[in-house]
Amino acid sequence: MERKLLEKTDLALLLAAVLLACGVLLWRALRPQTRLTAVITVNGVVTETVALSALEAPLTITPATDPPLTIVAEPGAIAVVHAECRDQRCVACGRLTKPGDTAVCLPAKTVVTVRGGDVDAITY
C-alpha cells in the first residue's frame, strides 16, 4: 500500500464535499419556513388540528368515525393511510404536504386539510 498522503484531487474532493454540505445547510436555513397545520373535520366539526411543522415523530390519529380511518401525521405531511371503506379515495390522495391539499372521505364524513403556510399568526 504505497500512496502519498495527500493529492491535489483530495483537496478538491474535500472542498466539494464541504461546500455541498454547507450549501444544503445554508439553503435549508434561508429557505422561508412554512408553518403547516393539518385540520381534521368530522361531520363539519373540527376534531383535531396538528401543527405538522412542529412534529418530531410520526403521529397516528384515529378519529371516531364510521367507517374507521387511520391518519398518520409526520413532520410536514399528513396522509390517510387506511380506511375501512370500499372506495379508498382518501387513501389514494396520498401524502398532503402543501397548504390547500385535502383528502376527503365521504363515507366517514371526514375532511383532512393542510392549512397555513403563509400566515404565522392572526390578530382578532
Binding site: D118, V119, D120, A121, I122, T123, Y124
Partner: peptide, 22 residues
C-alpha cells in the same frame, strides 16, 4: 418568537412574520 394572547400578538427576534387580520 410569536406570542398570541387571544389575538393580541407579540413578535420577537427581528425576523419578519406574516400576520393576518381576521
Amino acid at each position: 418568537g410569536i406570542v398570541s394572547l387571544g389575538g393580541s400578538i407579540l413578535l420577537l427576534g427581528g425576523q419578519a412574520f406574516t400576520v393576518g387580520i381576521k
